[in-house]
Simulated scan of single mutants.
Amino acid sequence: MSEPLERLLQVVMPYGKYQGTPIADLPGNYLNWFAREGFPPGEIGRLLALMHEIDHNGLKHLLDPLRR
Rank of each mutant, 00 (worst) to 15 (best):
M1G: 15
S2Y: 03
L5P: 06
L5G: 11
E6S: 14
E6L: 15
L8S: 06
V12L: 05
V12N: 13
M13F: 04
Y15E: 05
G16V: 11
Q19L: 06
Q19R: 15
G20R: 03
P22T: 01
I23L: 00
A24I: 00
A24W: 00
G28M: 08
N29G: 03
Y30K: 12
L31W: 08
L31G: 05
L31Q: 09
N32R: 15
W33M: 12
W33D: 11
W33L: 13
F34S: 11
A35M: 10
A35F: 08
A35K: 15
R36E: 02
E37S: 13
G38Q: 05
G38K: 08
G38S: 08
I44C: 02
I44T: 06
I44E: 03
I44G: 02
G45N: 12
G45Y: 08
R46Q: 14
L48W: 05
L48M: 12
L48Y: 05
A49W: 05
M51K: 10
I54C: 01
I54D: 00
D55M: 09
H56M: 07
N57T: 14
G58I: 11
K60I: 04
H61N: 13
L62F: 10
L63I: 09
P65I: 13
P65E: 08
L66S: 09
R67L: 01
R68L: 03
